[in-house]
């Protein structure tokens, strides 16, 4: 006869901790996602009755100009944002990792944007772009500053990008600083004796040794920039003329307010796949260059 295995006290404790978390995760994440996936095959408006429409929503996605435009904007925003954030963060991390005074205090100050919520920052910058900068432009008679950047269909995305980058640099810098601190000091000393200039040292020693951190930052910043929502909501509301309509904002706006719940659920599912594929590809490319210290 098979003997029944008795659960140890330790195992019971683990289960006691894990089960509520799994249930909460399922209720508020997995279940809505599965529901969304189901509704993506319907013509549900978010209220009333609905009918199954098969893959029609997915087919329509590729012919909807607003969806395509939002993808273009989101990709442009994510690519520019990822590059800018990573370059700026790396420069900041190098400076904050150098032998300078008040290093810890400066690190704390530079981290502040990450503590503030995206909406708060968005509204602060909205005020700056709408009132302060135009006022400066008028005072100094600088024409291109006299109108809010957020009111220009051509340049509003740059305003949103500035805010996104400003906020994202904080966390990325912290990750780069921790990466730089993993490089042993004597490796730099050996490189100095071997004759490296600062430039060579960075490209031949520092950068290859922090590739794992570059990889993490690229994936995180790309994902965060692709899912831009708070800044759009607080700065432009997707305008002017839908020029800053991000995918997340479009899903939220048209899905909940525009009677396209089923259609935007299909959009959300495709967007989810895009982000997963993007992350996997990026991770694969950078992980080939990763080296263990």
């Amino acid at each position: 006869m098979k003997k029944k295995r008795k659960m140890s006290k330790k195992q019971k404790t683990y289960l006691f901790i894990i089960i509520p978390v799994v249930l909460l995760f399922f209720m508020f994440n997995t279940w809505p996602m599965l529901n969304g996936f189901f509704y993506s095959f319907t013509n549900y408006k978010g209220y009333g009755s609905y009918e199954m429409v098969g893959f029609q929503n997915y087919i329509d996605l590729f012919s909807d100009t607003r969806v395509l435009k939002s993808y273009l904007f989101t990709f442009k925003y994510a690519i520019c944002g990822t590059i800018l954030v990573n370059v700026l963060s790396l420069l900041m991390a190098l400076a904050l990792n150098a032998k300078i005074r008040c290093k810890s205090a400066l690190r704390g100050i530079y981290f502040v944007p990450n503590i503030l919520g995206g909406l708060i920052i968005g509204y602060i910058f909205s005020y700056i772009f709408t009132y302060i900068i135009p006022a400066i432009g008028q005072t100094w008679n600088i024409e291109w500053l006299q109108n809010s950047i957020l009111s220009s269909p051509a340049y509003a995305w740059i305003g949103v990008l500035i805010v996104g980058v400003w906020q994202a640099v904080a966390m990325t810098t912290i990750i780069y600083i921790s990466g730089l601190q993993t490089v042993p000091g004597d490796v730099y000393e050996a490189s100095r004796i071997d004759g490296s200039s600062k430039w060579t040292e960075f490209w031949k020693i520092t950068f290859p040794l922090i590739i794992p951190f570059v990889s993490i930052n690229l994936v995180l910043t790309t994902k965060n920039f692709m899912m831009v929502f708070d800044q759009i909501l607080s700065l432009t509301g997707g305008g002017p003329a839908q020029s800053t309509d991000s995918i997340s904002y479009l899903i939220y706006n048209n899905g909940l307010d525009g009677g396209q719940f089923g259609f935007q659920s299909a959009n959300a599912f495709i967007f989810f796949l895009v982000i997963v594929i993007f992350s996997i590809v990026q991770q694969n490319i950078t992980s080939k260059k990763e080296e263990q210290l």
């Binding site: 042993p184 004597d186 490796v187 000393e189 050996a190 490189s191 004796i193 080296e291 263990q292 210290l293």
Partner: peptide
Amino acid sequence: MVFQNYALYP
């Protein structure tokens, strides 16, 4: 120079 912890480029 030869360092105590070798300081090889990993």
